[in-house]
């Protein structure tokens, strides 16, 4: 009985949000399974988002849970966590790592106040299938490979080769910029504008892309 109180279930716009307050991954899974067995009809066909706080999860464990849920007709679509390891895991499996609306105040106990402009710092290479989302700027140390995606509300800076898809100013900020040591993204978006890279130039040099009068322009980086 004690185990069950470790979970809170809440209806949200996109389905159900299950918040796990404490315990290891195995305890959470156990609690969740017990809850589902208790009320199978309630969960049947549900879209489930799971908030597991600071718990670190590996791909194998998370995909096992996703598979076992899908066998019971429950669709796991998002995993929220404060652990970067877990976020990366979820992204690897193609799960969302934030709800479309601002995250409800589920973890009021550990109130975290991130200023809107705090950048997300990511170590590369970002491989195919990785998705980084952030409501501020994103800085990547390393390459962004084709098939990887960066969606940032602010600017995106890549210290490496940018060859994936990047969207800066995703919430409409037209002053956002994208810069990289080698700027050859599959697709580049700033606010509402979309562009693809021109065919490879002869010389690779750091470039910066920005919106000038509603058009995307990329130019070599000039200091000063």
């Amino acid at each position: 009985m004690n185990v069950k109180r470790a979970l809170t279930i809440k209806g949200i716009r996109d389905g159900l949000l299950v918040t796990c307050h404490k315990g290891s991954w195995n305890e959470m899974v156990e609690a969740l399974n017990a809850q589902i067995e208790d009320q199978p009809a309630f969960f049947k066909g549900a879209r489930l988002a799971l908030d597991i706080g600071p718990c670190e999860v590996r791909v194998a464990d998370l995909s096992a849970l996703r598979d076992s849920l899908s066998e019971r007709g429950i669709h796991l679509w998002a995993v929220l966590s404060t652990s970067p390891v877990t976020e990366a895991t979820a992204q690897n499996l193609g799960l969302a790592t934030r709800l479309s609306r601002p995250q409800p105040l589920v973890s009021a106990g550990e109130a975290k106040s991130i200023p809107a402009e705090a950048a997300k710092w990511v170590r590369g290479p970002l491989r195919s299938g990785t998705r980084v989302e952030h409501d501020g700027p994103v800085v990547v140390l390393g390459d962004v490979n084709p098939g990887a995606e960066i969606i940032a509300h602010g600017s995106v800076i890549v210290w490496g080769r940018l060859r994936g898809v990047v969207h800066a100013g995703a919430a409409g900020d037209e002053t956002a910029v994208v810069c990289a040591l080698d700027l050859s993204p599959t697709q580049l978006r700033i606010a509402g504008e979309i562009a693809v890279s021109p065919p490879r130039r002869a010389k690779i040099q750091p470039e910066i892309a920005r919106l000038v009068d509603g058009r995307l322009v990329a130019e070599p980086w000039q200091s000063g």
Binding site: V59, A88, R127
Partner: peptide, 9 residues
């Protein structure tokens, strides 16, 4: 690349 990412994770 995708597989290597998963293996890393």
């Amino acid at each position: 690349d995708r597989v290597i990412g998963i293996l890393d994770a």
